[in-house]
Design a protein around this nucleic acid. Structure first.
Length: 137
DNA sequence: GCCAACGTTGGC
DNA sequence: GCCAACGTTGGC
């Protein structure tokens, strides 16, 4: 079991929209970055991830689950780009902000804090537990 | 709205 | 294969 973090601008694709897709989930498409794509290719069915709102909110708002492993991105014919499907699992009781993550010593190595531009990131198990704790789960 | 960080593209 | 130019992301 691995842990991940998916970043999205709420104006483009929000947590509420993700929740509305229900158990079927939705393609996490539109990623045009090799590192992010490689992370998605490494994902297994049932892996969990955080859903992060960039720009507006700048906070982790919920937990998602990989509902389909890597497959071609339906929004392009370019064979380079693959994506996974994810479905909403549950919201955090309290969203965890980027600011909180930055001041938490146990999250000092987190990709979210150190490489803000990567849109699909791996999350270490220890980091996962800290965020869940801060999020009131 | 600005700008820093980063990734990609394309000329040489 | 290097590197400058450019585009995009995302925090502030």
């Amino acid at each position: 079991m691995a842990y991940w973090l998916f970043k999205s601008e709420p104006d483009t694709w929000s947590w509420d929209q993700q929740v509305a897709k229900g158990a079927a989930g939705e393609e996490w498409n539109g990623v045009r970055n090799y590192q992010a794509r490689n992370n998605m290719r490494a994902m297994k069915l049932g892996d969990l991830g955080f859903f992060y709102h960039s720009n507006q909110g700048k906070e982790i708002v919920g937990i998602v689950e990989v509902s389909a492993e890597s497959h071609p991105d339906s929004t392009t014919d370019d064979p380079r780009w693959d994506c996974v499907d994810i479905r909403a699992v549950k919201p955090l009781a309290r969203p965890v902000t980027l600011e909180q993550a930055k001041v938490e010593p146990r999250l000092a190595e987190m990709v979210l804090v150190n490489n803000t531009r990567l849109s699909v990131q791996p999350v270490a198990e220890a980091e996962w537990k800290v965020i869940c704790e801060l999020g009131g789960l």
